[in-house]
Simulated scan of single mutants.
Amino acid sequence: MRVTLSDAARRHIALFEDVTDATAVDCLFDDTNDRICFLVTAGEIADAIGPDGQTVEKVEQRLGRQVTLVENADTPEAFVANALAPAAVYNVTISENRDTVAYAEVDRADRGVAIGADGRRIETARRLAKRHFDIDDIELA
């Protein structure tokens, strides 16, 4: 799918790439919690994080927001697993009935991690999956 970026998203991605030397392909804003999520090109997440998280901390300081990073993937299954990280996702199955739903098998101990505080992680995963793979929902199995 082709994702259209707002001017604000393009400006934030440019700053992110300038600080991290990693490539971001999308960014989502969560203004209610003053957070921003960058979708980072596959294989570049380590560069974006930096040693001991120092690089992503620089981005947070420059933006004045908490930053979340998600690594891009070629398949919808890998994408959903990456979006729920650091939760241990064992398997993702895509079901296409009336709606397209991704069922993610998550370790019982990591369900809270996959959901995130106030449901933020899974909601971000849902928004990204919809934008990039036209997945209508993500459910934890």
Results as ranks from 00 to 15, higher is better:
Thr124Tyr: 02
Val25Cys: 12
Arg108Ile: 09
Phe79Ile: 06
Asp99Trp: 13
Ala85Met: 07
Phe79Gly: 11
Asp26Ile: 00
Ile13Asn: 04
Glu123Ser: 14
Asp31His: 06
Arg127Ile: 04
Arg62Gly: 05
Val113Phe: 05
Ala48Cys: 08
Tyr90Asn: 15
Arg2Glu: 14
Phe29Gln: 09
Asn82Gln: 12
Val67Ser: 00
Asn82Ser: 12
Asn82Ala: 13
Val19Asn: 11
Thr75Asp: 04
Glu44Val: 06
Phe133Thr: 06
Ile49Trp: 04
Ile45Phe: 02
Ile135Asp: 03
Asp118Arg: 10
Val25Tyr: 14
Val106Thr: 06
Arg98Thr: 14
Ala14Lys: 11
Glu57Ser: 13
Ile115Ala: 04
Glu123Arg: 13
Asn82Tyr: 06
Ala48Phe: 02
Pro76Arg: 07
Asp136Cys: 09
Arg120Phe: 15
Val80Met: 05
Val3Glu: 09
His132Gln: 10
Asp34Lys: 14
Ala9Trp: 08
Ala42Pro: 01
Ala48Trp: 00
Leu128Asn: 01
Val89Ser: 05
Arg127Phe: 05
Leu84Phe: 05
Asp136Gly: 12
Glu96Leu: 05
Asn72Met: 03
Thr20Val: 02
Val40Pro: 01
Glu17Gly: 07
Ile115Glu: 01
His132Thr: 11
Val70Ser: 00
Leu128Met: 02
Ile122Glu: 11
Ala24Gly: 09
Val25Lys: 14
Ser6Asn: 14
Ala24Ser: 08
Phe133Glu: 05
Leu84Glu: 10
Gln66Asp: 10
Asp18Gly: 13
Val89Thr: 09
His132Met: 11
Leu69Tyr: 00
His12Tyr: 15
Val67Ala: 01
Arg35Leu: 11
Leu39Trp: 01
Glu139Asn: 11
Gly50Cys: 07
Ser95Leu: 11
Glu57Met: 05
Gly64Met: 04
Ala141Gly: 11
Ala46Glu: 14
Ile45Gly: 00
Asp110Met: 10
Val113Ala: 09
His12Leu: 13
Gly43Phe: 11
Asp26Leu: 02
Gly112Pro: 00
Thr124Gln: 03
Glu71His: 02
Ile45Val: 05
Asp74Glu: 04
Ala46Tyr: 06
Asn82Met: 07
Arg2Asn: 14
